[in-house]
Amino acid sequence: MALEDQVPVVAGVHMIALYICAVIAVYAALRVITERNSMRKLPFLNVVSFAVTGIIALLLPHPLTIAAAAAYFVGSTLESNAIASTWAGGLKRP
């Protein structure tokens, strides 16, 4: 299997992509805390989780990293979903 040929040998070759993800994460975090409306914060929080998922994948190229990145992204999405649904009063009261 040619799996080893496609995995980059040195993790630090593509540095500009990593820097772009880091800068966008900081920018979106600043937008999160400066936005006043509670629901309009959630798209910026989504940008933070996209950028952190990119950082996770770019820092450590290993096959298990896909599971870690997907678990982090799905967890963050589920958190946003729960916050928005509770804010809307959507959870049924038993």
């Binding site: 593509h14 500009i16 992509a17 990593l18 772009i20 993800c21 966008i24 920018y27 979106a28 937008r31 798209p43 910026f44 989504n46 940008v47 996209f50 950028a51 990119g54 994948a57 770019l58």
Partner: peptide, 16 residues
């Protein structure tokens, strides 16, 4: 890796 950074930029233009 270009596509990872490119997708982060693309979602920034929509949501951010």
């Amino acid at each position: 890796s270009d596509f990872i950074a490119g997708m982060v930029i693309a979602i920034l233009t929509i949501q951010g």
